[in-house]
Nucleic acid binder design. Structure first.
Ligand code: FES
Ligand code: FES
Lengths: 153, 153
DNA sequence: TAGAATCTCTACTGTTTCACTCAAGTTTAT
DNA sequence: ATAAACTTGAGTGAAACAGTAGAGATTCTA
């Protein structure tokens, strides 16, 4: 998995929406200002997340975006898969974006074998972490920014 | 970590060199034929690996490439880092290719926090797996291709 | 010592992706 | 009515990707 700027923006926008989860809606402008994301670009991204059913929008004056589901039900895996595509380091080990690579024999490829492990390790993390957990971590980091290193493992 | 075709080719070439580890040298043409890699492209890649001290070459007739170190001393991490750059999913959590991202406050960023875990998980694997292990896996897969799934973990 | 096979080095090229930007349109609160 | 918001689709400049090409240097062998 490699996150493009687009993917990073998507996660940051969802973090803002997660922190403001409730009835009301958040304007693009607010997210853009808060996270320093180019507004027109962010429009695209949120629209994209909408088509994935991750966020929903309200139009017109006093319009904006909100999460379409509870933060606890939105995994990073779902978001990244929609924005970036495969989580796997090579396409031949991807479950949902499988493409065979140029290896002569895929079934006996030791590289594929290792990459499968890498994929599993990544998936295990991003499928467990939700927007809700992102919010909790934001809270914890806000209170004790110096202990940041404790959360690595 | 996302492997480009270039990176995949590099690993496959090293696998061949690992399987043929010894005194003699292997021609580009041989690797190219064996692994179905465009020859001129492979030249570039092997040259690149040479500048990293991963392989060494012999010129002239009966020239070719060999591993510069014992297969057991060449980790996938070293190879991928040289060919692709950072292993981390975002630059702000990379140890050797660090670049700060556009987040307002890096020290309190929960996304960074999660991505650190992802990075650790990936590094843990690719820093442990060597070319030698790749060769052993190739051997095992050759003998029992049907048990491939057992190695996923 | 000529020649062929091999690596070396630099440069080029066409395609795709990335990160935006723009314009024009639709919806809705006031 | 109007302005502030989302919607849609297109456009753009730069960079990365996956090669390709050519001229040169080295070394074995005949
Ligand atoms: S089969 Fe995909 S890397 Fe070998
Ligand atoms: S600091 Fe890099 S993702 Fe937030």
């Amino acid at each position: 998995m490699k996150l493009s700027v687009r993917g990073e923006y998507a996660l940051r926008a969802l973090l803002v929406l997660g922190l403001n989860y409730g009835d009301h809606v958040v304007r693009i402008q607010t997210i853009s200002d808060d996270q320093k994301i180019p507004k027109r670009f962010l429009e695209q991204i949120l629209n994209d997340l909408k088509s994935a059913g991750i966020v929903e929008s309200k139009r017109g004056l006093a319009g904006g975006y909100r999460l379409a589901r509870h933060p606890r039900d939105i995994t990073l895996a779902a978001v990244v898969r929609h924005i970036e595509g495969a989580l796997a380091p090579v396409s031949c080990v991807s479950e949902r974006y499988y493409e065979k690579c140029s290896c002569p024999d895929e079934t006996r490829c030791p590289i594929r074998n290792v990459m499968k492990e890498v994929r599993e390790a990544v998936v295990k993390i991003v499928e467990r972490v939700t927007v809700a957990e992102l919010c909790e971590r934001a809270q914890r980091l806000k209170e004790e920014p110096l202990s940041a290193l404790d959360y690595i493992i």
